[in-house]
Design a binder for these strands. Structure first.
Lengths: 168, 168
DNA sequence: CTTGGAATGTCAACAAAGCTGACATATTAT
DNA sequence: ATAATATGTCAGCTTTGTTGACATTCCAAG
């Protein structure tokens, strides 16, 4: 692919046919199905959905985060997130505590049960990601990440970058 | 990234930390938002959703396709697709004709109006894909595609491959 | 200090798009 | 000819997005 074109510079005027771009678009569409397939199966058993997975994922990543902060990461309305959080709290997967400094805020943490589900979900998702990475090799992986990052909205990329630099 | 690891072979036992995999997972999540953002805006104006976009895209790709075939590509139930198709047909964007050989089948085509919306949507989506591709360069693009393909389910990849080899 | 506006989160009701079940029509096989 | 299969449609439920109304808390202006 792309033989005879200048090497990647981030600035070169590449010729990109509609056909090449269409393939990328379809690859993205089909791959995203695979990306979510394994967690979706686990969630369905427990009558949860993708929205619950996303909440659990980012609460795990940023323990003690507020509803408002989670909102801006997830890019949904607070009313929509609230429904999902409510079920997770009622089911004892997430703990919500009133803010000490600002009592309007609720700080969110995973309970041991919530953390267990988080592990189950991310193990499943990582397994697929790992085998895709292994099949494609490290050079491809670097390219994969570069293209994805370039595809994000400016604001979204800031969230992404902020998450990125945090060791566990 | 991945310094000191063997070059990509597709077989090597790469060390992939949970951290590296998590970044890939989050990149995929955030990038998919960007991927759909532009068409979503156009669709919202016209009171359509992503489901309409997907139907229009694949009818454009495979004119004359049947409902059943579209179903297996999209991976949804026929009842779900039917609702979307109904509105597109009623609004005059899609033409449905009874099968000549098999009268149970409906063959689907875009009308001129439907084709116009298809162009508007795919132009928007291609613009973003093009600028991401340009920013990342051809080597990265090749890697991007490799990883996405490796991430698909077996069956999905067959659909993808079948689509791939068709010139416009 | 108090009071009015902004920020945070919750509750209610609605819309889009997934799902299963029931069914009509057309085809194929027995 | 008739039973079984395949295709597509209709009805109703669930998940998860949306907007609107509201209670609580905080903070800044007077």
């Amino acid at each position: 692919m792309a033989d005879g074109l200048p090497a990647q510079t981030g600035q070169s005027l590449l010729f990109l046919t509609d056909e090449q771009l269409r393939k990328g678009i379809e690859a993205m569409f089909f791959a995203y199905r695979g990306f979510t397939a394994d967690p979706d199966r686990i969630l369905a058993e427990k009558s949860y959905g993708r929205a619950h997975h996303r909440a659990i994922h980012f609460i795990h990543r940023s323990p003690g985060t507020t509803v408002n902060n989670l909102l801006s990461i997830l890019g949904v309305t607070k009313q929509s997130l609230n429904r999902v959080l409510r079920t997770l709290i009622d089911d004892g997967l997430v703990a919500s505590s009133v803010g000490k400094k600002d009592k309007r805020e609720r700080h969110l943490h995973l309970t041991p049960t919530g953390a267990a589900l988080e592990r189950e979900l991310s193990n499943a998702q990582r397994d697929r990601m790992r085998s895709a990475y292994r099949a494609a090799g490290p050079v491809a992986v670097a390219g994969f990440r570069q293209v994805l990052e370039a595809m994000m909205d400016e604001e979204t990329r800031h969230h992404y970058e902020a998450m990125k630099e945090r060791a566990e």
